[in-house]
Design a binder for these strands. Sequence first.
RNA 1: AGGAACGUAGCUCAGUUGGUUAGAGCAUCGCCUCGACAAGGCGAGGGUCGUCGGUUCGAAUCCGACCGUUCCUACCA
Length: 922
Amino acid sequence: MTPMDKYDPKTVEGSWYKRWEAAGYFAPQGNGRPFSIAIPPPNVTGTLHMGHAFQHSLVDSIIRRQRMLGDKTHWQMGTDHAGISTQLIVSEQLARENLKPMDIGREAFIDRAWQWKAESEGTISTQLRRMGASLNWQTERFTLDEGLSRAVLEVFIRLYEDGLIYRGKRLVNWDPVLETSISDLEVVSEEENGHLWHFKYPLENNQGQFLVVATTRPETMLGDTAVAVHPDDVRYRHLIGQNILLPLTDRVIPIIGDHYVDQDFGSGCVKITPAHDFNDYEVGQRHQLPVINIMNTNASLNDNTPEPFAGMDRYEARQAIIKAMQELGLLADTEDHKMMVPRGEKSGVPVEPLLSDQWFVKIKPLADPAIKAVESGDIEFIPKQAENIYFAWMRDIRDWCISRQQWWGHRIPAWYDPDGNIYVGASEEAVREAAGLAPDLQLSQDEDVLDTWFSSALWTFSTLGWPDQTEALDTFHSTDIMVTGHDIISFWVSRMIMMSLRFMHEVPFKKVYIHGLVVDSEGQKMSKSKGNGLDPMDIIDGISAEQLVLKRSSNLLQQRVREKIEKSTRKEFPDGISAYGTDALRFTFYAIATRTRSMRFDLKRVEGYRNFCNKLWNAANFVFMNTSDHDLSGPSSDSIADTWIQITFDKAAHTVNQAMETYRFDLAAKAIYEFIWDEFCDWYLELCKATLLSDKSSDEQKTAARVQLLATLEKILRLTHPFMPFITEEIWQKIPAGMRQHETIMLAPYPQAGQQDETANNKVTDDINWLKQVIGAVRNTRGEMDISPARPIPLIFYNGTTEDKRRLNAYTELLSAIARPESVTWLNTGEALPVANVQLIGEMQLLVPLAGLIDKHAELQRLAKELDRLANDIKRSSGKLTNPNFINKAPEDVVFKEKLKLADFEQALKELTLQKNRISDL
RNA sequence: AGGAACGUAGCUCAGUUGGUUAGAGCAUCGCCUCGACAAGGCGAGGGUCGUCGGUUCGAAUCCGACCGUUCCUACCA
């Protein structure tokens, strides 16, 4: 057979995915146990980022392994419509044509959005395919498609009828750029520098007397409806019930007493603006204060404010008010002040609490069972710690504002008549009929759409056909596990649990695996705006430094930031990124998937695993070179190495399966890496060479080695396939057809450890470990003494046991092939010894005579160091053993082991001291 | 302010109920083109496990305090 071409991920990964998909391997099949996972639906118009790539790599390994274990697996594919993001993008597209959404109207806008969806939806699907994700594409869904929209409608109507959805005027987080309400979770607060302005508010009845209030947002004063003091505050409590003349307006507002006020902060007086502050709103409710909304939806001041402020932008108004107050002599003080500024996650501008009509889900009745489901263990979080995030959120949950003032999404199925009566139903006809409305009664549908998460919350069952009772729903719900990040627990996990319990009467998933965040090599969160993100596709395909700089900085608005990013990018990736391939990238993800909350992503790691692919590739090449053109059907006889590699493989398979059962992807990856590289390549292949290249081995032995080489390689490939799907399939297809019973490795059985005969196994592994130790000792001597591996050296075995002698006799051939001795001599205890370098293997000494080979000085130095170490060990060990407390209280086996250890140390010390004396006598 | 997590080799991280000489990869140093592989082989150096105290015969591991880093939640007008 001709050697395989050099490992190149591009050619290896080229066509397999298409073939798998075309063959229908991703669809559920067989009669095994159903096993299902629903993908957290990515944004249909989005692209795959590192977090996605990581997450889906984890899921794919789970799915592929379960499939190979014979389960009927279903990995639900689908995307969501990402209401706000998509609306924003389409609006930006319009802006480039100097158009506003209003200019083209709702219908045309939605058309544009669908158009954009059609254009961009292929991107993330293609990227998922490049990652090798074995998703079931045949049942792909989209949150706005017909079936899922029907589920949304059904849920909305039923919740409304059950009194769990209501409409009300409430204070919500308002994004003045997007002009919509947004969720608490979509607000990010960061500390910023601001000011605290102290205003003097004149008392109504005491001319010339003032209360001083402090504010970070002067513009809201026009909406003040009270000043609050603490009811116990001796400075002010007598003023409670009196009034303030609110400056710049003609309004008179009361002084109220409320425990909300902190007497020690500022002046101890607080202005109360119920329409523009969440806390003030509550104070206002308690005291029945009027709620005066002073802002328009774009955060300019409205007609409830006096001239000249009406119509001004909020920040323009702020300056104007400060100036006006100053001119009135009512500005007492201005000081610098650090404060948290809440900004809209998507728009980046400060959000406003705004009073508006919104739809809400009454959440408590949904949350209570959802909390119980986790408390009772019906749903298990992995790691367990993550439950805290869930409970913290759920136990303090507030009604969920589900209406968004947008066009792209599920329109709220509510209609209003001219009197403002609300009718909820599947369609206008439906509500007319249900309510028996006169045909000529004017009805208008609510303009708003639902929060995207409302539809995502139904994901695990809506994608399977609900509200229809489909076979898929019956088979695959509840799903087995949800894999997601901790940042999404409150957004989504909790809402799925609530909705599934309510409508399916079962949990949406039995387990939730919460993974950490992929961060850059500096520990920073990867983000577009920071320009520190990596595109998984660039790691797979490679990218030049120039293109990478361009890609990272093109989205950045500020020149300064752009330059900074360019500099750091050029520093970190001076030569760009080379093409590492999907398999290496995936393996990196498994290796870093530890239990920590964040994982630094380092390309060096990817490089290491690309090298690992190369190693596997070359090992396969070796196996094929040595097995093709040979008849493997003849009689065979396993050598110790052949038996050993089978045992060792079984152990590795056991470790991998165990790790996967506990979702320790890192341990699974480690076990695979170590078995392939350290055991199969470094030892087994070398031992096979000894057998295959020697005239002394029989045909039976050679056949056994060849069979075992192929069989082990084949098992390795199956064990590794869930993690590195491409390279394993590529190599597996080169295995002689007789050794594989399936058309694809994807459907071949996953290796599991069989029954083990511990005693027999230990005998084998002990022998191989002995051999490894002897070879290690020889290599060590060569290394320490700078003896070329090419130069044969005489080996003398001294003071060995009969077991040592048996092993030496049995494995001289193997030993010789790897250690390359000039001669092998066995000396019995008491026989005369040459002056030599000595290494201890248990009680046995391995000697390499000094003559002409070894530097006396260097050897003495080495011995001194060794003796030093032994002296230390003896001191510690005997210290323990002379401690009566240790002898009495420690378990027997621990004491016994310690005694053995000490004996070994002392024996070694004795031998090496003798040796040292002999050499220094030279 | 409240809650949580983390701190192990130069770097990134393992270390599962306390019990070997605390491990791996990368980086470093030395040797090696020996018929799979230089994207390689062989060998070596490198850690008072953040600090202090406690529990224990025994602590990287359990407890407390402190220092440092990070995240989450809520915010004071």
